[in-house]
Write a protein that binds this DNA or RNA. Structure first.
Lengths: 216, 216
DNA sequence: ATTCATTCTTGACAAGTGTCAAGACCAATT
DNA sequence: AATTGGTCTTGACACTTGTCAAGAATGAAT
């Protein structure tokens, strides 16, 4: 039933602009903005609709229920966010360049989209209570871990060293720093940007140990 | 008005057992159990009352509103949890003893009270949206940071070394590892305990660098 | 035994929730 | 012009929520 629906509806677009899938995404992005401001628990379908161009009933036309909408939003966010550092990784030619580029991007991310990130942490916490969220949260978390690992391995490469720790541990460290800095940033505490920059700048080199050039 | 109330009511205890303050705590502990199972957002005052020996109306006798109850619960939890590692710190006589003692306690904490910890992370995430929670969450976070710092400095002392990083950074790292392990533990993923033990066992020594014995 | 303040229960209220059915709207097809 | 079927709005539903008022229950003080 769902597949038939999708096929038929995506064939034509009557109202507004764009196809069925495009409007699904439009609704999801509108929902993401609202979720980022109010948080997962305090956002109702009517809040979402009020901040969009639709009425509150339309949600059940595009999504089965609230949970499906949320999960769709999260997955959509994932695809946007997962490769944020790829350009930094590919364009850096020196270890120091990568280091400052990474730190800059982290700071930019922190200060430009804090609401999206607090929503992510909100959902990740909720996944500890709601089993329905666990799989998707886990997938995103692993995606972010891979993203960080690409940075770490590339830095090791450029600095002719080897990562001292495994992917998972490296991610939890940067993630912990970022989450802590995000709370400070949202609470308007001073020195947040300087702190996270200093932390990242010292952590990344510390995670890599020079390779023994005499061997092999 | 609140002070008068407290004075008078704590003077005598009619119903049940214990004073006014003791029953406040009893209600709060009951609330903590329920909150730990359902999460902050999905727990209603009726849920809390249902899992206690009281009726749902009694909450407004002991607390002004829901937020005051939550904050009281959190602070109560804080006092319980804040000095969990003190005995490990004071009783350890060698660096390795402290290391394994710390790791054991972390594992024990993780596996014995996972619900309390997911509640804490839940509230900390909520504090990014609700300003009313920020101060208390911040205080607890600093208390936990101090707790970790006591472990780190003591380890440095016993291993005749110096911490390489500052208190805040050390805390975010251990906290990140713990939170990640907690999600794995709650999702019944295998190897969680071994992972966190390995991480902690390697991280704590890595945070300390041998002191230069020739100087001073 | 009566009084009395404290403690607790009950029932109700208004507001807000997710969900859904009924139908209006509208563009393309006939 | 009439029909068709995807799109969207409206209004309602059953339910839950925090809050509070009214009063019952309780045990100490008189």
């Amino acid at each position: 039933m769902a597949s038939t629906q999708t096929e038929q509806k995506s064939a034509r677009s009557r109202r507004g602009t764009g196809s069925y899938d495009e409007r699904r995404i439009k609704l999801a992005e509108s929902a993401l903005r609202t979720l980022g401001q109010l948080g997962y628990a305090r956002t109702s379908l009517r809040d979402i609709a009020a901040n969009s161009e639709f009425s509150h009933g339309v949600v059940h036309y595009y999504f089965r229920d609230k949970t499906e909408l949320i999960i769709f939003c999260v997955k959509h966010y994932k695809t946007q966010c997962m490769h944020r550092y790829d350009s930094v990784v590919s364009e850096s030619t020196t270890a120091d360049g990568l280091l400052t580029g990474f730190a800059d991007k982290l700071v930019q991310t922190l200060s430009e989209e804090p609401s999206m990130h607090r929503l992510w942490y909100d959902l990740r916490s909720q996944s500890m209570f709601q089993e329905a969220l666990r799989v998707d949260v886990y997938d995103i978390d692993r995606g972010l871990e891979d993203m960080i690992w690409r940075v770490v391995t590339r830095y090791a490469e450029l600095s002719e060293s080897r990562p001292m720790i495994e992917s998972r541990a490296a991610y939890t460290m940067f993630d912990g720093i970022f989450e802590s800095a995000l709370r400070d940033f949202l609470a308007d505490r001073a020195g947040t940007v300087e702190w996270i920059r200093a932390q990242v700048t010292s952590l990344l080199p510390a995670l890599c140990t020079p390779v023994d050039s005499t061997s092999s």
